[in-house]
């Protein structure tokens, strides 16, 4: 059983994440505990083998804060909206399955976009087409083609934010070019 050797640099984000989890669970961020956690994390990462996640090589922290703000705002408004729909419309609700084609072809980014969308109430990823990176979303309260168009624009805006944070250089350049157009 031969397995592909993964260089330490690829494993590093996972190891750091596991050390943070370890520290949080023990509620102790002292150096001794962290070093012991790092040893365990390294052992776990090598013992329980996972295929490496292909990151995109870019990560811009500056865009994370406005993205989180936008995400929380959407979370609150959409949660209240779903509550209101449940009370006011209930069984008379009209839904739709909307296809949205994304710009990026990176698996990582498509997953991140689908994840962010699924967390916000009112949209749910039903199916993903990897070959064209198209997401099929089930959306609450879509009465017309215009509503679907609003959703498509919104999804592509979410993707644009994620590209700014951690898209590949090529995707980021393409996004810049797209924004430069009038």
């Amino acid at each position: 059983m031969s397995r592909q050797h993964i260089p330490l640099i690829t494993e590093l984000p996972l190891v750091i994440w596991l050390v943070i989890v370890w520290g949080a669970l023990w509620q102790d961020f002292g150096p001794g505990n962290l070093v012991f956690g790092a040893v365990i994390a390294y052992a776990v990462v090598n013992f329980f083998y996972l295929p490496p996640v292909e990151l995109t090589g870019r990560f811009n922290v500056l865009w994370v804060v406005p993205f989180l703000g936008r995400f929380l705002l959407q979370l609150v408004t959409a949660s209240v909206e779903v509550f209101w729909l449940a009370v006011s419309k209930g069984p008379k609700l009209r839904n739709a399955v909307v296809a949205v084609e994304l710009r990026s072809h990176s698996d990582f980014l498509v997953t991140a976009t689908g994840h962010a969308l699924s967390l916000i109430p009112g949209s749910l990823v039903l199916e993903v087409d990897r070959s064209t990176s198209t997401l099929y979303l089930h959306c609450l309260n879509v009465a017309s083609e215009e509503d679907a168009e609003v959703i498509r624009r919104d999804v592509r805006a979410t993707e644009a934010w994620l590209i700014r944070i951690m898209g590949t250089r090529a995707d980021f350049a393409a996004l810049r070019a797209e924004e430069a157009l009038p």
Binding site: R94, N95, A96, V97, V98, A99, Y136, V142, E145, A148
Partner: peptide, 11 residues
Amino acid sequence: DLLTLDELDDV
């Protein structure tokens, strides 16, 4: 009957 459009169904 509750869906206004279903673009997955076409595919």
